[in-house]
Design a protein around this nucleic acid. Structure first.
Lengths: 228, 228
DNA sequence: TCCCCATTGGATTGCCACTCCAAAAACGTT
DNA sequence: AACGTTTTTGGAGTGGCAATCCAATGGGGA
């Protein structure tokens, strides 16, 4: 498909305002961030890029390709922004938070993630986590399980959080109103049948998803320390 | 809408072969189990039930309602089949495995779960988990976080696993072929850039998702013990 | 200069969820 | 048992979507 001349120069761009795979993905991300998964329609894309279907489908295989690549792009951004800490635990926390915040900022990634959980970009995260666990003296045979476990928790909690955020946005409530309503609703739950849920209501009122996420990260880190 | 006579008798059923919400949900689950999310179309439902659109929409609000209720039904089945152990740890493992196996058997639940993570049925699981953590002497302030963390890991890993299974089914490969292909592919990964992933290949070959899931549960349990 | 083919735009196709309505079946009342 | 009412049913119709198809355009190499 791509024709490269003998002198090795890249194929010349066709038009000044030329459409490209990158531009299309960028637009797709904008649409997704703006209005969620439902907002990404091919029709909306043609309008946003003032072009036609044919032009888009020339650069992109189909909508799945579009969604998958957009998701890759989000994860790639997390990677480039990753911080290097001297303390492996702190580094793991930062890595986890990076993923959590990215999915929180782009909730549509969550849906795509549960559709395709094995994108190549994630390999870099597995590699980083495994390396940090090695630095924590986790023995090799346990490292494999621990890496997957850590990723499952991080992505699982981020997805849950993103879905909640999406639900919030759809219902037009803000965070406080939603938590208040949920707390009230849960408070009415039959205390006899659900004593622990009932007792949790008070904590729900001033509850911070990000902090709870980090608390979970620390539970896993404590559990992993026991593997040594 | 419902008219209840003064003597309190319920409204009589309409037809012998009567369509009902339950029958429709049942059919939906059959279609979903048979061919995944794509297989559930209203058209397919009308054929499967030999009826029309109107009849179905009389009992069900829309497709989301259908999917949500079908998901509830799967979780409800897990609840009824739940085992009670004397050892809280063992009980947590059984609870987790019940969810894992259910999502493994009905992979379409995963997608719905990341769309609506707060269905009322899940309250029962939160309650059970919180109760078991209490039995493990997890202090109350930590119990709230730990319960959510556990659920996030369990559902997150189950969703990841289900997506893999779905991917497997779509590509027509069996488990062994897929793992072999993945291991081969990963083996080719640049060992310099991905030393830990490269080292993990050997473990991938005889890797059991269910066992790895349980290993993760144990990491969590070990981490919980540190909270005491 | 001229031709080739990468690139483009949009009409068209086919599938889908969902609506609407008229007919049929059961019910309650007398 | 007859009748009006309400519930339930089937399917034609609507609008929106992803994806295909094809004719037109124009840039760059020969």
């Amino acid at each position: 498909m791509a024709k490269t001349s003998a002198n090795g120069s890249a194929r010349a761009p066709r038009r000044k305002d030329g459409l490209s795979r990158e531009v299309i993905i960028q637009s797709a991300i904008e649409l997704l961030d703006g209005g969620g998964e439902r907002a990404l329609t091919l029709r909306a894309l043609t309008i946003h890029l003032s072009t036609g279907y044919g032009a888009i489908y020339h650069h992109v295989a189909d909508k799945d390709d579009l969604l998958a690549t957009a998701t890759d792009e989000i994860f790639a951004r997390v990677l480039t922004g990753a911080v290097i800490d001297t303390d492996p635990r702190e580094n793991l926390r930062h890595l986890a938070l990076g993923l959590f915040d990215a999915i929180d900022a782009h909730p549509w990634v969550a849906a795509e993630l549960s559709r395709q959980p094995w994108r190549p970009v994630l390999l870099d995260f597995y590699e980083s986590i495994a390396g940090l666990l090695d630095a924590l003296d986790v023995p090799e045979r346990a490292r494999f399980d621990a890496t997957g476990t850590f990723m499952s928790y991080v992505l699982g909690d981020a997805v849950k959080n993103a879905a909640t955020a999406r639900h919030l946005a759809d219902s037009g409530m803000d965070r406080a109103a939603f938590l208040g309503a949920a707390a009230t609703q849960w408070a009415e739950v039959n205390p006899g049948k659900y004593p622990f849920v009932h007792a949790a209501v008070s904590q729900l009122r001033d509850h911070n998803d990000r902090e709870q996420f980090l608390a979970g990260v620390d539970i896993f880190l404590a559990g992993i320390a026991a593997l040594r």
